[in-house]
């Protein structure tokens, strides 16, 4: 019993103190994968904010965008042209989703729309495998001008390794968030988006085109998905296994709140850091592999105390 308590409450901290370089490395790993979680969560938040749809297909959109990019490049299209073409494909997808799914299903309960994005997920999995095959592919990171290699920083008797691609990912993510922030808060479209988010009927009655807004939002989510796919693909490779990252982003959303862009970022970083640290220092106690559910438990505990998330709007229910 004493031994167990010791290994829970004392030993991990002793380890942290003894090897600060390992701690920093773990924290850094957590932060960089947090950026990716945050990017996925960002795609979710965008669509949830503007159409009230919980878009389960965000994960497969990431895979689909990355596969399109790599697939085009494999057929000899220059990298930047392929990038532009992929963005066009995401636009087509957004228009298609609006025409074929959102428009006929307008004003249906949330759960029906949620299920529809499930149908979309299945459809995209099938389509992606049919066109590009099911094998993992290598992301064309080098041709897109993304750096490779790493910096090594010596500290406290050890060293910490920082991958250049991770730094690039962090920079791109922050640029994207800044861009979306400006789009949402400073432009006419952004105001329309927020109006639709509040109440799509009221927005419709003051002359905002729902169709247009939905296409814009889904297109923005598609571009975010593409960025996520490139970053994630550069770290490992592009395969359908990426599809499950959508589920990993859920606790991030819970922490950040479903409607908050900064929440998505902070939530992503928090969840990922705690996950990595938890796995590294406490994981061995229960046989490892706790990464798969640890984030959910954090989110669950958090939910009990602050159900609206860190930055989410508090919704007061009235009878």
């Amino acid at each position: 019993m004493m031994h167990l308590l010791y290994s829970i409450f004392v030993d991990p901290f002793v380890q942290m103190g003894a090897a600060p370089d390992l701690l920093v490395q773990t924290l850094w790993d957590g932060l960089v994968s947090g950026v990716l979680y945050a990017l996925i969560a960002l795609g979710f938040v965008l669509i949830f904010k503007a159409s009230g749809v919980f878009n389960f297909a965000q994960g497969i959109m990431v895979v689909f965008a990355a596969l399109t990019l790599v697939g085009l490049a494999e057929h000899g299209v220059p990298a930047y042209v392929a990038l532009a073409l992929t963005i066009v494909v995401m636009l087509v997808l957004a228009v298609g989703v609006e025409r074929l799914i959102l428009r006929p299903l307008v004003d249906q309960p949330e759960i029906i729309l949620f299920m529809a994005t499930f149908g979309l997920t299945y459809f995209l999995i099938g389509l992606g495998e049919l066109i590009f095959g099911g094998d993992p592919k290598v992301m064309i990171a080098g041709q897109l001008g993304l750096p490779s290699g790493s910096y090594r920083i010596t500290m406290a008797g050890g060293y910490v390794q920082l991958q250049k691609i991770d730094i690039a990912a962090a920079i791109i993510a922050s640029l994207m968030v800044a861009g979306l922030g400006i789009l949402f808060n400073r432009t006419r479209i952004g105001r329309a988006l927020r109006a639709v988010a509040d109440s799509h009927r009221a927005a419709l009655s003051v002359g905002i085109s729902l169709e247009q807004i939905w296409v814009i939002v889904w297109f923005a989510a598609g571009v975010v998905a593409l960025a996520t796919g490139i970053m994630w693909g550069a770290r490992s490779d592009v395969s359908f296994a990426l599809e499950t990252i959508a589920l990993k982003a859920l606790p991030v959303l819970i922490l950040g709140g479903f409607t908050s862009i900064p929440g998505a970022i902070v939530g992503g970083l928090l969840v990922s850091v705690r996950q990595k640290v938890g796995e590294f220092y406490w994981g061995s106690l229960v046989g490892g592999g706790i990464e798969s559910w640890f984030a959910y438990v954090i989110a669950l505990v958090f939910l009990l105390f602050r159900p609206q998330g860190l930055f989410g709007e508090r919704i007061i229910e009235r009878l």
Partner: peptide, 9 residues
């Protein structure tokens, strides 16, 4: 997969 997804929608 594709047809199932389309049919669900």
């Amino acid at each position: 997969f594709m047809i199932l997804g389309a049919l669900i929608i």
